[in-house]
Write a protein that binds this DNA or RNA. Structure first.
Length: 490
RNA sequence: CGGGGCGUGGCGCAGUCCGGUAGCGCAUCUGCUUUGGGAGCAGAGGGUCGUGGGUUCAAAUCCCGCCGCCCCGACCA
């Protein structure tokens, strides 16, 4: 058992915090509600960025960068948007500091004519620019993504899952027709799904948000929802069809092919550093982090075992040759832990804590047998690889790990997703942290609130690929023709 | 914003009730022995006790103010 990590069974929330801190993914910052993303955590975010960025480029998007500060008046332009974000904006009101006479203290100096808010999201500043950039249908579509930080003055925070400042990407696109914009919304939702499943090894339910849960200012919001190991849902990515709401608010019009003036159609979509928290909650265990191979900057952790200086030289030499082959032939990077100040046992434990998907051990006995021992992080399986074949076998092992992780998480989600047909059964299921409840639903936003108050569960998504079937709403008894997902959520 | 808890070497805590030389564990450093699942022994370094004021011969300890953080709720990616 890992030192300093509370077990999941004992206290899931504490386990999560312990893993994040012990694996050195993040640390609390000396700033309220904020965290420091440490190198181990940032490496994962970089891997997420690199892959998603490739996928955005492959679907025709380009990157740009907009200002951190947004004039307060911009926020006022879209009514729903204001309501959604006003309370959680950090506001910049002064332009400098001055010393308080006779004291060491500083205080704000020049009050600004108009306050700025630190972006909680960038729709407003981006659409203020789009107004200048779009005149004709020939300027469309405009497919821009931004990698940035945003700030939301959260009252309760949790490392990675909810912090005041977080890193994300926000795509903001403009289109000539509603159909095109809707297509884009669903295309990017699909990109998120593919990324979640194929790279994070995280199965998701893809669907639409209810009226009460959609993004402030959106016509419709779509999301991918994943199930964590404690059976709670985590929204892992959202894609919004914004209709013409922002175009109207910022007066962004264009002339179409028929020489008519029309408002531009918009989408926005984003994922954040929350995904790092999702990885922890879905794959990590009581011994620490587990990184899916495709998101590990260095998927291989090599531990040399030796007593004498001569042994050390031989063992490290053999490992170096293998690791070089892996890098040159398979583009796989690794860590060779040459520290003389830590014992192999310590390195094993630390390698597991940090979540390297595959560990290679090589000692004098292995050298004599011309083999290397590969240990899989997620299930502790040990495989003896003949040295001559090791470079070819390791990539296959990594692929197998990636597949296993997804299969394991999928099985877990499927086993805890149930069709539920009465409100009593529903209450019992949710109270027992049963997971995702598939229920017939025909309620209003007020009914949703009632369910949340009575059970703490919320309507996560209306699945896009759900079958059409007749049924009756578990709460209102009204007729329904599809099931939706209710669950407790982060 | 409501409720609760806590601020003492890097981390976790004891000491506070009942004022009297600031302690323990882990971590760190040095040396020797170790090294195939978180090594052992010996020694060493490191603290304005969150902060400002008050009481007192004397304050981590008592009194008043302020600040910060964590947890639980409502709000949210």
């Amino acid at each position: 058992m890992a030192k300093n990590i509370t077990t999941r069974a004992a206290d899931y929330s504490q386990w999560y915090v312990d893993v994040v801190r012990e694996a050195k993914l993040a640390d609390y910052a000396p700033v309220k509600g904020c965290m420091v993303i440490r190198p181990n955590g940032y490496a994962i975010w970089e891997a997420i960025q690199q892959q998603l960025d490739r996928m955005f480029k492959d679907t025709g998007h380009v990157n740009a960068y907009f200002p951190l500060l947004i004039p307060q008046s911009f926020l006022e332009k879209e009514a729903e948007h204001v309501k959604g974000f006003a309370l959680e904006c950090a506001v910049v009101t002064h332009s400098g500091l001055e010393r308080v006479e006779g004291e060491a203290r500083l205080r704000p100096k020049g009050k600004l004519e108009e306050a700025y808010v630190i972006r909680p999201t960038s729709e407003t500043v981006i659409w203020a620019m789009y107004k200048n950039w779009i005149q004709s249908y020939r300027d469309l579509p405009l497919l821009i993504n931004q990698w940035a930080n945003v700030y939301r003055w959260e009252l309760r925070t949790r490392l990675f899952l909810r912090t005041a400042e977080f890193l994300w990407q926000e795509g903001h696109t403009a289109h000539a027709t509603a159909e095109e914009a809707r297509e884009e919304t669903l295309r990017m939702l699909g990109v998120y799904r593919t990324f979640a499943e194929e790279y994070m090894a995280m199965p998701v339910i893809v669907g639409e948000k209810s009226e009460g849960q959609k993004f402030p200012g959106a016509v419709s919001t779509y999301a991918i929802e994943a199930m964590m190991q404690d059976r709670k849902a985590l929204q892992a990515g959202t894609s919004h069809f914004l209709g013409q709401n922002f175009a109207r608010a910022f007066d962004v019009t264009f002339q179409n092919e028929k020489n008519e003036l029309d408002y531009v159609w918009a989408t926005s979509w984003g994922v954040s550093t929350r995904l790092v928290g999702a990885l922890v909650m879905i794959h990590a265990d009581d011994d620490g982090m587990v990184i899916p191979p495709r998101l590990a900057q260095r998927p291989i952790y090599a531990v040399p075992i030796y007593r004498s200086a001569a042994e050390r030289e031989q063992v490290i030499g053999a490992l170096r040759r293998l690791l070089d082959d892996l890098r040159l032939q398979h583009n796989l990077r690794s860590v060779l832990d040459e520290r003389d100040t830590a014992t192999p046992g310590f390195k094993f434990a630390e390698g597991e804590l940090f979540g390297y998907p595959l560990r290679l051990e090589l000692g004098p006995r292995d050298l004599a047998a011309n083999q290397v021992i590969a240990t899989l992080r997620h299930n502790r399986e040990k495989v003896k690889l003949p040295l001559p074949q090791a470079a070819a076998e390791v990539p296959r092992l990594l692929e197998r790990i990636q597949t296993d992780l997804f299969a394991r998480a999928k099985k877990d989600m499927d086993e805890h997703t149930r069709e539920i047909n009465s409100y009593d059964e529903f209450k019992e299921f949710i109270a027992a942290d049963g997971g995702f409840a598939l229920v017939h639903w025909a309620g209003t936003p007020e009914d949703e609130k009632r369910i949340q108050q009575e059970t703490k569960a919320t309507l996560r998504v209306i699945p896009l690929d759900g079958a059409v079937e007749k049924g009756t709403c578990i709460l209102t008894g009204r007729e329904s023709n599809r099931r939706v997902v209710f669950a407790k959520a982060y």
